[in-house]
Design a protein around this nucleic acid. Structure first.
Length: 497
RNA sequence: GGGCGCGUAGCUCAAUUGGCAGAGCAGCGGCCUUUUAAGCCGCGGGUUUAGGGUUCGAUUCCCUACGCGCUCACCA
């Protein structure tokens, strides 16, 4: 890739300029600034506008050269640093022919990092700018700048070479600033409510806590098969056994599944657990936390996602799974206590279903096919079938149903929570049953997590637990249609030659 | 993994039924001392993703490979 014969005209020309610069005694990659930076671009503009710069007080600015407008013996240009853009004004009278013609006009290109020292002023058209007295090159770009107006649109280039995307498309940089602000808002909310941030193993000898196929890896010295975690749940609950009342973790989960606009193999998850509350308490926490995020990053509770207005003001509706499906399909699954009778009812209603699915899977299928996409405004769907919820506590008056909810915004599932199952005997029975149900597909068959069961033997207090995908939350708050747009380096197939 | 679609200059995009591969930006040369997608004059730049096939002739039609997108499946 670096062979000279593969370089295009413009790349070769930029390399020629490197040697020309060195011939002039200019280091195209100097180790530091020739003169210390005095302001960011934004600070310089503000300081000047607010009259905080003395008359003729020089400022030293830095940035990547984005545009140039040469008018013979004078030129305007814009440079961009992390704070934004500032216009610079260069005059041959001021800089001299050597700097203006030989260095600036001939050897400095769009995309180069430069530094200028000069004096702030306002142009005829009212733009606060810097009239340059000294010019320095900080780092030469050896490849042409992308289109200054259109940026880079090619999806593959944008994702494989995210640095190109970021440097060419400022709005992409904003997405990841917002992502950081969301995570900060989450920490602020949880820290402010007495939650302790913890870290639990990514490499796990037994995986669990979610329904997903894992990635496997291997520890050489121990000669031990390990799994990359698919959730934090079983470790975090151990911590409540140990006496912490409120814990949370923000970190990476790994699921070996298909990739889609809302699935990346590794994604960032938030889970928190709170003793002495239940899933109702978790619902209040979730709507409060999401509202807090919205206030922090959007300044209010009304947002727009892909053209649809969404109001995040708590409280959000709580709708049982049963009522949601009944309303959308006319099927009341409570009337059908087993998979075969429910399947018959679904068929009679003329709806889609997976013939071999369990009762819980049939219900989940109906929900996914007929309800989920309609949940545009924030909604809690509560009370899930037992057999798809092995870690949630049964409802006291209905042992086929558990105290669980998922919350939906913009037709997308964003998170999952339950009143945690803390009965060690029941938990063991659920694991055994689950293993039996999965025995056919041995990829998911794995040993019981005896240590987790042992922890429950020591007593887990009544607890509410919650997990949510930070990537999907970021999609929501940055109005992005795909998870790839909110992950800096999303997974792509490697290119084979 | 299945189905459908896409891949043209450094970037953004055109190219009629299968008939000389183009434009804007960027680049290079020239003019231009308050411009801002600066402007004006001129010039260069292509293995049309890769490999094969049909044809007098292929960016266009066919096959294979690679990558990307959409979608379905998978996701206790």
């Amino acid at each position: 890739m670096d062979d000279a014969e593969h370089l295009n005209e413009q790349q070769l020309l930029r390399r020629d300029k490197l040697s020309a610069l060195r011939d002039l005694g200019v280091d195209p990659y100097p180790p530091r600034l020739p003169r210390a930076r005095t302001h960011t671009n934004a600070e310089a503009i503000r300081a000047y506008s607010e009259g905080r710069l003395a008359a003729d007080e020089p400022v030293t600015l830095v940035g990547r050269l984005l545009t140039v407008r040469v008018m013979g013996k004078a030129a305007f240009a814009h440079i961009e640093d992390g704070s934004g853009r500032v216009q610079i004004y260069l005059k041959r009278d001021v800089l001299g022919a050597a700097v203006y013609d030989e260095l600036f006009k001939k050897l400095i290109d769009l995309g180069d990092f430069i530094t200028v020292t000069g004096v702030m002023f306002t142009t005829r058209t009212g733009e606060v700018s810097c009239e340059v007295r000294e010019l320095g090159l900080l780092s030469k770009m050896l490849t042409p700048m992308p289109d200054k107006w259109h940026g880079v649109r090619d999806v593959e280039t944008r994702l494989r070479q995210r640095y190109v995307d970021l440097l060419a498309n400022p709005q992409v940089r904003d997405v990841f600033r917002t992502r950081a602000a969301i995570i900060r808002a989450i920490r602020d909310y949880l820290d402010g409510n007495g939650f302790l941030e913890v870290e639990t193993p990514v490499l796990q000898p037994i995986y669990g806590g979610a329904a997903a196929r894992p990635f496997t890896t291997h520890h050489n010295q121990l000669d031990q098969e390990l799994f990359l975690r698919i959730s934090f749940e079983l470790y975090l609950k151990r911590l409540l056994v140990g006496g912490y009342e409120r814990v949370y973790e923000i970190g990476r989960d790994f699921r070996n599944e298909g990739i889609s606009f809302k699935h990346n193999p590794e994604f960032t998850q938030l889970e928190f657990y709170e003793a002495y509350t239940d899933y109702h308490g978790m619902m209040r926490r979730v709507e409060e936390m999401v509202a807090a995020i919205s206030r922090a990053v959007k300044g209010g509770l009304n947002i727009t996602y892909q053209g649809r207005d969404i109001d995040l003001t708590p409280p959000w509706p709580r709708i049982t799974m049963r009522d949601a499906i009944l309303g959308a399909t006319g099927v009341d699954y409570a009337l059908y206590p087993d998979a075969s009778s429910l399947a018959a009812a679904i068929r009679a209603a003329g709806l889609r279903y997976e013939p071999l699915a369990s009762r819980g899977k049939l219900i989940d299928g109906l929900f996914g096919d007929y309800v989920e996409a309609t949940l545009v405004q924030p909604t809690f769907i509560i009370d899930y079938p037992l057999d798809i919820s092995p870690l949630a506590k049964k409802k006291v008056d209905d042992p086929t149903t558990v105290e669980r909810f998922e919350y939906f915004i913009a037709g997308m599932e964003l998170g999952n929570a339950f009143t945690e199952l803390n009965d060690p005997i029941d938990q063991r029975a659920r694991f055994v049953e689950l293993r039996a149900a999965l025995a056919g597909q041995d990829e998911n068959a794995h040993p019981l997590d005896e240590d987790f069961l042992n922890a429950l033997n020591y007593g887990l207090p009544p607890t509410g637990g919650f997990g949510t995908g930070i990537d999907r939350l970021t999609m929501l708050f940055t109005d992005q249609p795909s998870i790839r747009e909110v992950i800096l380096f999303p997974h792509l197939r490697t290119i084979e030659d």
